[in-house]
């Protein structure tokens, strides 16, 4: 095609990945939906590996559950919370965590993989938003086993508690679990964005990661300072505890129970700002 190939900049045969937000979103979903399917196929192609991974992840989840059961062999309740109430919180958190582990795990390893190993250059060279590329670049399918176990635990707890669950409650629970996943993702997005500013591996993510388990227990057992942090700074309390109090009808937290989606949205906005700031910094400093 000779000359034709070097004429004006705007007559490329490929349609640009620019335009209205709706179009861009649809295109992003199309690309990463396809990637998810491919990753799933790859995992399923090696059945033995897949089930081994699945079993290992599931075992990890079950071990932490076992701890809760063992705890309640000795004590009938924990600061006024029964075992089954805690299991409900625990199960909801596991579902959110499983989604996070499957979809957003890349964020946890962002500093190392993208900044230190330099993969972010490649991200900048593709006509798709940088955040979507990082968020969806790999899927850890076995992490979904955590969701299944979590769902099982929630069902078990609900049955033991003899909760009467209405359609509204189920919808509320689904929103809560999704909000939990979004909160995890937003918090680790903010931490990932910090990697743009510091060249070294900074050890902030692992301690925050460990705090995920703080969100699996009644917040009333913590000192007030920590409770504050888990509400407004690293809002893991909103992942499962506060929404669960709504389902359990424990009144003092009713107001906080419905806040989860709002907290999730607020942290997303914050995370987006941090990300933009980081990318601008990357463009101007380089590594």
């Amino acid at each position: 095609m000779g000359d034709d190939a070097v004429s004006s900049p705007l007559d490329s045969p490929s349609r640009p990945f620019v335009g209205p937000l709706g179009t861009r979103l649809r295109a992003t979903v199309e690309v990463y939906g396809a990637l998810f399917v491919q990753m799933l196929k790859v995992r399923l192609a090696y059945k033995a590996d897949f089930f081994a991974d699945l079993a290992a992840t599931a075992l990890g989840g079950l071990a932490s559950l076992l701890f809760v059961f063992l705890l309640f062999l000795r004590a009938p309740e924990l600061a006024g919370w029964s075992r089954d109430e805690i299991l409900l919180i625990y199960g909801m958190s596991m579902i959110s965590y499983g989604l996070f582990g499957c979809i957003s795990w890349n964020l946890y390893e962002f500093g190392d993989r993208y900044i230190i190993q330099g993969q972010f250059d490649r991200v900048m060279l593709r006509p798709v938003g940088t955040y979507a590329q990082v968020l969806f670049d790999s899927f850890r399918i076995p992490a979904l086993s955590e969701c299944l176990i979590g769902a099982g635990v929630v069902a078990f707890a609900m049955q033991r508690l003899e909760l009467v669950i209405s359609g509204t409650d189920l919808f509320f629970a689904a929103v809560a679990v999704t909000s939990g996943f979004v909160i995890f993702t937003a918090v680790f997005s903010i931490l990932a964005s910090l990697s743009f500013h510091f060249e070294d591996r900074i050890g902030v993510s692992p301690p925050v990661f460990n705090m995920i388990s703080f969100g699996r227990y009644p917040q009333t057992i913590f000192p007030s300072a920590l409770r504050f942090v888990l509400r407004w700074v690293i809002p893991f309390g909103f992942v499962a505890f506060y929404p669960a109090t709504g389902l359990l009808g424990r009144t003092p937290y009713r107001g906080l129970a419905v806040l989860s989606p709002l907290v999730a949205v607020a942290f997303c906005v914050l995370a987006y700002g941090f990300w933009r700031w980081g990318v601008r910094r990357y463009e101007s400093t380089g590594f």
């Binding site: 990945f17 199309e30 690309v31 396809a34 990637l35 790859v42 798709v128």
Partner: peptide, 18 residues
């Protein structure tokens, strides 16, 4: 993509470039 067959990587890139 490290784990995908070459052709699948091409297809994904094709989607990215519309």
């Amino acid at each position: 993509w490290w784990d995908l067959a070459v052709i699948e990587s091409f297809r994904l890139l094709g989607k990215m470039y519309r």
